[in-house]
Structures are given as C-alpha cells and as structure tokens.
Design a protein around this nucleic acid. Sequence first.
DNA 1: CACGAACCTGAACTCTTTCTGAAAATCCGG
DNA 2: CCGGATTTTCAGAAAGAGTTCAGGTTCGTG
Lengths: 221, 221
Amino acid sequence: MRLLLVEDDQLLAEGLSSQLEKAGFSVDIAHTAKEAGVLGEQEDYKAGVLDLGLPDGNGLDVLRRWRANKVAFPVLILTARGDWQDKVNGLKAGADDYLAKPFQTEELIARLNAIMRRSEGRVHSTVKVGRFELDENRQCLQIEDGTEHSLTGTEFRLLRCLMGRPGHIFSKEQLMEQLYNLNESPNENIIEAYIRRLRKLVGAETIATRRGQGYLFNDTV
Amino acid sequence: MRLLLVEDDQLLAEGLSSQLEKAGFSVDIAHTAKEAGVLGEQEDYKAGVLDLGLPDGNGLDVLRRWRANKVAFPVLILTARGDWQDKVNGLKAGADDYLAKPFQTEELIARLNAIMRRSEGRVHSTVKVGRFELDENRQCLQIEDGTEHSLTGTEFRLLRCLMGRPGHIFSKEQLMEQLYNLNESPNENIIEAYIRRLRKLVGAETIATRRGQGYLFNDTV
DNA sequence: CACGAACCTGAACTCTTTCTGAAAATCCGG
DNA sequence: CCGGATTTTCAGAAAGAGTTCAGGTTCGTG
C-alpha cells in the first residue's frame, strides 16, 4: 500500500514514516512542494498525507496542481491546530480529510484507511486516446479544446468499444455483437448511422473506414 | 439518506426508527446478526447503528465481517453504560463512534450526522454548490440572491443526495434506494415528480436529465 | 470504363422515457 | 375527527433516442 508523505520537518517525517510503515504502508517522503508535485504525478500512490506548511510554497498549491493534473488518490491534509481557514480551503482544493496537529498516529492511520476505503468506490475511470477522453462514470466525452459532450447510451457503448482498442479494426458484425444481445437484431445499417453521429463529434478523420473490413479509432491524431 | 439499524429489541428498534425517520433518514431494521450481515453487504447504506447485544452472535463480529467484506459506511455502536471494553473493541473492529445506553435520540442523530459528514470529508453542516447552499440542520435551501426556501422532508433528502455529489449521475433506482427503505416502494414516477418540484426552486437548468441514465446536479452554473 | 458492393447521408418514423398538471391518498397536529 | 401539508398516483403531452429507409457516393475489380 504505497503512500506519499509530504512534510518538511525531517524529524517528524521520519518518525511518522516509520510508524506508518509498521501499519503496513510503504512510504515515500517529499520534503518540498516541488518534490511533492513531481512525485505525486509520476508515481502510483494509494493515498497522500500533506502538511500545509512547506518552505517553498503552499501545500494547497501542490494539492491544486495534483487535482488539475488528474492525480486522483485521496489526500489527507495536516493543519496547524485550530486553523479553521486552512481546513476549509483544503477541502475546497480537493482534500479528502484533514487532521489538526498535534495528533495521535493511530488516528492518522485510521483516517488514512477510511479515505482509502472510500476512494476505492469512486475511482474516476476514463479512457484517454489522443485528444479525447471518455468518462465511463458520466458517459460523456471530453475533448482537449475543453468541450464536453454527453453521449446517449448507444453512442457511448460504440465509442467505448472503439476507443478501448485504438488502431484496431472492428468489423460491423463485431460491433453489432457488442451493442446488441441475441434477441435484438436491427438492420446492420444502424452501425453506419451511429458511426456517422460519432464522427460529427470527434471529426470524420478520427474514425477511419476500412472498406470491407470495418472501422477503427485513429490513435495517431 | 439510507441507514441500517441493528437492534434486537423490537420495541426499541421501532421507536428509534420512527424518530430517525423524522430526522430525514430512511431506516431498515435488522433484528439479528445474520440479517445485519446480509443487509449491510447487499444494500447501499450511508451509515449504520449497531447494538452490540444481539441474540444470535456478537455485534462486533457483524462489524468485523462487514469491514472484511469492504462494507465502508460509517458505523456507530451502542454499548451498555460504562462498558469500556466494548468501546475499545468496537473502535478496533472498525466502528466510527460509540454511544452508551441510555442516550437521547437527539444525541444519536447528531453523532450520526457527524460521522456521515466526516466520512464524506466535510466539515460544515451545509452543502454548498454553485449559487446554492443546503443547510442540513434547518432543512432549507439558501440561494445567492438572498432568498431562502424551506424544504419538505422528501424534497430535502433528494436534494441532499444530488448536491452531495454534484456532476454525478444518479439513476432513478439509486435515488429510490436513498429515499425509501425496503418496505416502501412507491411508483418510480415519484422521482420525476420531486425532480420537478426541485426544479421549480433551483431552476430547470440546474438539475439536468441524462435520458436513460438519470439526473445530476449541475455544478457549472 | 462499367458495374456491383460497400458505405454515407439526411430525414422520417417508431417507441420509450420523461415531463407535467391535477387529483387522490396519506400523514399529522390540534 | 378535522383541516392543512405532504406524499403518491395517474394519464396525456412532449421530447428524445433508436431504427429504418431511400437515395447518393465511393471504391475495387474485371
């Protein structure tokens, strides 16, 4: 269970780290905001502990940067005692819980476990191909230019199929199988009709036709 | 706001249940450890109240079984007065809070709200989304233009559900589960009817329909 | 180059889901 | 038991998604 601890105080960091390791975490320590930003984005952590008082920048900026860059693991922030404003700002910036210093390590561990449990239930599952990102929870398509389109059920299922394996050619028969069960068997033209609708969203060049073979989602665009 | 009450004493269970329902919860009752284990794993509760003295097994075993099976909702345990050991064991087994019998129902409700807030990572007893602020204590909705509307019980529970996770699509079935317990099962059209009422308050564009998928509270307004 | 097959296109049609207003039923305090 | 508030049901209207159709276009092959 990998965990990132962001804490500038060397002594406190190592003390906490060893206790967290006893509790079954493997802990990486970041001592500066810069380090924290990079590590959080590059490594695959299951949770983060973030002290807001950092020498080279506000911890909240780290958190905001993470969230802006789709870093999704749950984060618990450590605030100075009674610093109400920090808590509120922290939660607004995307923190999952907070703990006021000083605290018992047991409580920290309990809360970490809690936010990890919770976050497992709501991982943001998206499929990203080129400029396009398909959000499976919200059934919508985000494009790099900032636009977002919500999809109908069939549009979504078809697009997920194509984007799930970019560059792979799917025959119309295969796509029919993915979209319909054995009882339903609409006209095969239905695939052409939906391909057309999708092309209106993503651009004609993004979904290529291989005459006689099928369709593919272009990953080189 | 769906809740599981585990209590073997029929009379106490029903008394508590009716008071909790007045406070805006929809309550399922489990009278035995076995029942509790099954319900907790199968249904989607927002919190649980667990009496430790059960006829067919220790309540703590129920809790441990839940936690072992990734049941994540916060649980408050009811212990006999002064039974210190139970409290400690309960918290170790994954409980989020405890309350010694006898207790005031108000206190139970307050603590339930607290552990639910905590489990969602919230500090305030209000939920604020865009121009809207939902006050959980007063069951009313404040809008940025200064107006304030008091909500009926069902209106409030539905709106809290939607505003608790802005941008997330809730299917009608999910909303039904949150608003009603296993005994009640009104016509599904009831959700449409209440959505309509809420829209008259917050404006039609604030609650979006995703045809065939569900409804969502728009956070981008 | 001519032909057929495969594919594209826009609009029309059907069917399901949702919206809507009002009426009926229920709950609750007095 | 009554009256107001709230919850629930109902049925017709409206909107939207899914599907089909009738041409038009492109491509590959003989």
